[in-house]
Protein backbone atom coordinates (compact mmCIF):
# COMPACT_ATOMS: atom_id res chain seq x y z
CA UNK A 1 0.00 0.00 0.00
CA UNK A 2 1.23 3.46 -0.82
CA UNK A 3 1.76 5.90 2.02
CA UNK A 4 -0.56 8.45 0.48
CA UNK A 5 -4.28 8.95 0.16
CA UNK A 6 -6.66 9.10 3.09
CA UNK A 7 -7.93 5.54 3.54
CA UNK A 8 -6.07 3.18 5.86
CA UNK A 9 -6.91 -0.33 7.03
CA UNK A 10 -7.17 -0.09 10.81
CA UNK A 11 -7.55 -3.84 11.23
CA UNK A 12 -3.73 -3.92 11.13
CA UNK A 13 -3.34 -2.11 14.45
CA UNK A 14 -0.27 -3.29 16.38
CA UNK A 15 -1.08 -2.92 20.08
CA UNK A 16 2.46 -3.68 21.29
CA UNK A 17 3.69 -0.87 19.05
CA UNK A 18 1.05 1.45 20.53
CA UNK A 19 2.05 0.54 24.10
CA UNK A 20 5.70 1.17 23.25
CA UNK A 21 4.88 4.63 21.82
CA UNK A 22 2.85 5.48 24.91
CA UNK A 23 5.79 4.54 27.18
CA UNK A 24 8.51 6.50 25.37
CA UNK A 25 9.17 10.11 26.39
CA UNK A 26 9.67 11.26 22.77
CA UNK A 27 6.23 10.07 21.68
CA UNK A 28 4.34 10.87 24.89
CA UNK A 29 2.31 13.63 23.21
CA UNK A 30 1.60 11.76 19.97
CA UNK A 31 -1.99 11.04 21.04
CA UNK A 32 -2.64 14.81 21.10
CA UNK A 33 -2.01 15.18 17.35
CA UNK A 34 -5.17 16.56 15.72
CA UNK A 35 -3.82 16.45 12.16
CA UNK A 36 -3.71 20.19 11.49
CA UNK A 37 -0.77 19.85 9.10
CA UNK A 38 1.34 22.71 10.46
CA UNK A 39 4.26 20.24 10.46
CA UNK A 40 3.88 19.68 6.72
CA UNK A 41 3.57 23.40 6.04
CA UNK A 42 6.77 24.07 8.03
CA UNK A 43 8.82 21.25 6.54
CA UNK A 44 11.88 22.05 4.39
CA UNK A 45 12.10 18.43 3.21
CA UNK A 46 8.48 18.50 2.06
CA UNK A 47 9.36 21.60 -0.01
CA UNK A 48 11.70 19.38 -2.04
CA UNK A 49 10.18 15.91 -1.74
CA UNK A 50 6.38 15.89 -1.92
CA UNK A 51 6.27 12.23 -0.82
CA UNK A 52 7.43 13.20 2.65
CA UNK A 53 4.46 13.90 4.88
CA UNK A 54 5.12 14.16 8.62
CA UNK A 55 1.42 14.69 9.39
CA UNK A 56 0.60 11.34 7.83
CA UNK A 57 3.42 9.60 9.71
CA UNK A 58 2.00 11.03 12.97
CA UNK A 59 -1.47 9.76 11.98
CA UNK A 60 -0.37 6.22 11.11
CA UNK A 61 1.78 5.97 14.25
CA UNK A 62 -1.03 7.27 16.44
CA UNK A 63 -3.34 4.62 14.96
CA UNK A 64 -0.74 1.94 15.71
CA UNK A 65 -0.23 0.97 12.07
CA UNK A 66 3.38 -0.04 12.54
CA UNK A 67 3.85 -1.87 9.24
CA UNK A 68 2.63 1.12 7.25
CA UNK A 69 4.86 3.50 9.21
CA UNK A 70 7.95 1.37 8.71
CA UNK A 71 7.38 0.03 5.21
CA UNK A 72 9.51 2.67 3.43
CA UNK A 73 12.24 5.19 4.24
CA UNK A 74 9.91 8.10 5.08
CA UNK A 75 10.68 8.14 8.82
CA UNK A 76 14.36 8.61 7.91
CA UNK A 77 13.67 11.67 5.75
CA UNK A 78 12.96 14.06 8.63
CA UNK A 79 15.98 16.37 8.74
CA UNK A 80 15.51 17.16 12.45
CA UNK A 81 15.33 20.92 11.81
CA UNK A 82 12.74 21.30 14.61
CA UNK A 83 10.74 23.97 12.77
CA UNK A 84 7.52 21.90 13.11
CA UNK A 85 8.30 21.32 16.77
CA UNK A 86 8.34 25.10 17.31
CA UNK A 87 5.01 25.54 15.57
CA UNK A 88 2.99 22.45 16.58
CA UNK A 89 -0.07 23.72 18.49
CA UNK A 90 -0.34 20.40 20.36
CA UNK A 91 3.31 20.03 21.40
CA UNK A 92 3.49 16.66 19.63
CA UNK A 93 7.21 17.19 18.89
CA UNK A 94 7.28 15.32 15.55
CA UNK A 95 11.12 15.09 15.35
CA UNK A 96 11.19 13.34 18.72
CA UNK A 97 8.46 10.97 17.54
CA UNK A 98 10.64 10.26 14.48
CA UNK A 99 13.54 9.34 16.78
CA UNK A 100 11.34 6.86 18.69
CA UNK A 101 10.09 5.35 15.38
CA UNK A 102 13.66 5.17 14.03
CA UNK A 103 14.89 3.40 17.16
CA UNK A 104 12.07 0.85 16.78
CA UNK A 105 12.98 0.31 13.11
CA UNK A 106 16.67 -0.04 13.98
CA UNK A 107 15.85 -2.66 16.65
CA UNK A 108 14.10 -4.61 13.93
CA UNK A 109 17.11 -4.28 11.65
CA UNK A 110 15.51 -2.05 9.04
CA UNK A 111 17.55 1.13 9.48
CA UNK A 112 19.43 2.51 6.44
CA UNK A 113 22.80 0.69 6.22
CA UNK A 114 24.68 4.01 6.06
CA UNK A 115 23.34 4.94 9.48
CA UNK A 116 23.93 1.47 10.99
CA UNK A 117 27.56 1.81 9.89
CA UNK A 118 27.96 4.83 12.18
CA UNK A 119 27.59 2.59 15.25
CA UNK A 120 30.40 0.36 13.89
CA UNK A 121 32.55 3.43 13.19
CA UNK A 122 32.08 4.59 16.76
CA UNK A 123 32.89 1.20 18.26
CA UNK A 124 36.05 0.96 16.11
CA UNK A 125 37.31 4.55 16.38
CA UNK A 126 35.26 6.41 18.97
CA UNK A 127 34.67 8.91 16.18
CA UNK A 128 32.38 9.08 13.16
CA UNK A 129 35.38 10.25 11.09
CA UNK A 130 38.63 8.65 12.25
CA UNK A 131 41.68 10.81 12.98
CA UNK A 132 44.24 9.03 10.77
CA UNK A 133 47.92 9.81 10.12
CA UNK A 134 47.05 12.08 7.22
CA UNK A 135 44.72 14.19 9.34
CA UNK A 136 47.17 14.22 12.26
CA UNK A 137 49.86 15.61 9.91
CA UNK A 138 47.47 18.18 8.47
CA UNK A 139 46.50 19.30 11.99
CA UNK A 140 50.15 19.53 13.05
CA UNK A 141 51.00 21.58 9.92
CA UNK A 142 48.30 24.06 10.85
CA UNK A 143 49.45 24.25 14.45
CA UNK A 144 46.27 22.64 15.78
CA UNK A 145 46.56 20.78 19.11
CA UNK A 146 46.46 16.99 19.28
CA UNK A 147 43.04 15.53 19.96
CA UNK A 148 42.28 12.13 21.49
CA UNK A 149 42.32 9.99 18.34
CA UNK A 150 40.22 7.17 19.80
CA UNK A 151 38.12 8.19 22.81
CA UNK A 152 37.76 4.80 24.51
CA UNK A 153 34.62 5.63 26.50
CA UNK A 154 32.80 6.22 23.22
CA UNK A 155 34.09 2.92 21.79
CA UNK A 156 32.87 1.05 24.87
CA UNK A 157 29.40 2.63 24.76
CA UNK A 158 29.02 1.99 21.02
CA UNK A 159 30.17 -1.62 21.49
CA UNK A 160 27.76 -2.32 24.38
CA UNK A 161 25.37 -5.19 23.78
CA UNK A 162 26.69 -5.93 20.29
Amino acid sequence: MKLSGAVVDISKVDTRFLRKLARELGSSNLSKCFQCGVCVASCPVRWIEAEFNPRRIMKLAKLGLKDLVLQNDFIWLCSMCFMCQERCPQDVRPPEVMTVLRNIAAEEGIAPPNLMKLVDMLSENGRVYPIDDFIEDERADKGLPEVVAKPDFIMKIAEAGK
Binding site: N103, A106, A111, L118, V147, P151, F153, I154, I157, A158
Partner: peptide, 26 residues
Amino acid sequence: VDVGFGCCGFPIEPIDQVKAISMAAM
Protein backbone atom coordinates in the same frame (compact mmCIF):
# COMPACT_ATOMS: atom_id res chain seq x y z
CA VAL B 1 40.80 24.19 26.76
CA ASP B 2 40.71 20.63 25.38
CA VAL B 3 39.44 18.22 28.06
CA GLY B 4 39.24 14.93 26.12
CA PHE B 5 35.65 15.02 24.89
CA GLY B 6 34.48 12.29 22.50
CA CYS B 7 31.55 11.95 20.09
CA CYS B 8 28.47 13.76 21.45
CA GLY B 9 26.16 10.84 20.54
CA PHE B 10 24.08 12.73 17.97
CA PRO B 11 25.08 10.57 14.94
CA ILE B 12 23.64 7.40 16.49
CA GLU B 13 20.58 8.92 18.14
CA PRO B 14 18.37 7.63 15.29
CA ILE B 15 19.67 4.10 15.89
CA ASP B 16 19.87 3.93 19.68
CA GLN B 17 18.90 6.90 21.80
CA VAL B 18 20.08 5.32 25.07
CA LYS B 19 23.60 4.90 23.69
CA ALA B 20 23.53 8.43 22.29
CA ILE B 21 22.48 9.92 25.64
CA SER B 22 25.09 7.76 27.42
CA MET B 23 27.81 9.28 25.21
CA ALA B 24 26.50 12.78 25.88
CA ALA B 25 26.34 12.00 29.63
CA MET B 26 30.01 11.02 29.73
